[in-house]
């Protein structure tokens, strides 16, 4: 993709608040995302840091009790201003989502093939037969064995990994421009996983599909991503080109995450290294850097205000005060 292409997804200052008995919970607090056609962003991060909530906000899938703030433009349109009708044309057609929980994507009482055909017919004026044919093609591409027969399966008749592949097929059914993939390969064995990753790379090249890919597996991120963003407590704390983030992680949380275990072979009978402490209470976040209380290089300045983004190198940024201090003491660096 050319470097000058306009972003297809542009979220600025995205916030999501949930009501709770103890006051609002700010699950996402000011996320900026920008994605060009054909680009893949891998979203890594702590469990509970707001990855799924952010993706659902891009689809406007939250119940109305949740408050979404900031701005979200996708394919030139203001998503937060869309009417119900505009939304139903938008979901699945412009942007589609692979859910973390396959249970949420399929209705247990209908056959999977019919559900995919239904989705195609909702957005395109095609016959049922044609829609079924599309579903079959997709099943073949996501490497579901005996695809024809599997179209007739009910969700409970498939294994976890087959349901996950069926969900990928459903998400791709209407040839969306943006795919939001929430841990889409966790239920797949390594042999199928690599085939699905290669398929997504192919769709990117062929159709300029843009992908946000949530994963906990650094190896998967390396295989699929152009850029990596790391989330902690509702914010993106570091982002940059894939190789830069993996090799020169700048934020202490990212470094802790990458070293939590040697993402390669693990030594037997060792205890695994975990980041000490626990993530902050989103209903009462600490002042200053949210990672501060767990950070090994915590300094007084970290407790005063949430750090701004600091440039590490060209398009590699991280929210850490110590980087700013380091930068200012190295003129030109």
């Amino acid at each position: 993709m050319s470097m000058t292409a306009e972003p297809i997804v542009e979220a600025v200052g995205l916030t999501v608040d949930f009501a709770s008995a103890k006051g609002p919970i700010r699950a996402v607090s000011g996320v900026d995302l920008s994605l060009k056609p054909g680009e893949t962003l891998a979203l890594l991060g702590e469990s509970g840091s707001g990855k799924s909530v952010s993706l659902r906000a891009l689809m406007r899938l939250h119940p109305s009790s949740a408050k979404i703030g900031g701005s979200v433009r996708v394919d030139g349109r203001d998503v937060l201003a869309m009417s119900a009708r505009e939304l139903s044309a938008y979901r699945g057609k412009i942007v589609s989502m692979i859910f973390q929980d396959p249970g949420l994507a399929f209705d247990p009482v209908y056959r999977i093939g019919d559900q995919i055909a239904e989705a195609v017919m909702r957005h395109e004026r095609v016959s049922r037969a044609e829609a079924r044919k599309r579903a079959l093609e997709l099943f073949e591409r996501v490497r579901i064995p005996s695809p024809e027969r599997r179209l007739d399966n009910y969700p409970h008749e498939m294994s976890g990994g087959m349901r996950q592949r069926a969900m990928i097929a459903l998400a791709l059914a209407c040839r969306p421009k943006v795919l939001l993939a929430d841990e889409p390969t966790t239920a797949l064995d390594a042999t199928v996983q690599i085939q699905v990753l290669l398929l997504l790379r192919e769709l990117q090249r062929e159709f300029g599909l843009a992908i946000v890919f949530v994963t906990h597996d650094v190896g998967v991120a390396v295989e699929i991503a152009d850029r990596i963003a790391v989330m902690y407590a509702g914010r993106i704390v570091e982002s940059g080109p894939c190789a830069d983030v993996i090799r020169n992680a700048a934020h202490p949380y990212t470094r802790g995450l990458l070293s939590s275990r040697s993402h390669g072979a693990l030594g037997k009978d060792e205890r695994l290294k975990a980041i000490p402490g626990s993530p902050p209470d989103l209903a009462a976040p600490p002042p200053g850097c949210a990672f501060g209380p767990r950070c090994e290089s915590f300094a007084e300045v970290c407790g005063s205000a949430m750090p701004d983004n600091v440039v590490v190198s060209s398009s590699h940024i991280a929210r850490c005060v110590r980087l700013a201090i380091r930068n200012s003491s190295q003129p030109g660096g």
């Binding site: 469990s47 906990h216 995450l257 205890r271």
Partner: peptide
Amino acid sequence: DEAVSALDKSVEAQVLN
């Protein structure tokens, strides 16, 4: 059965420990 697949590596380490 796939009981730690949705955990980040630090939390996963905590649960495996």
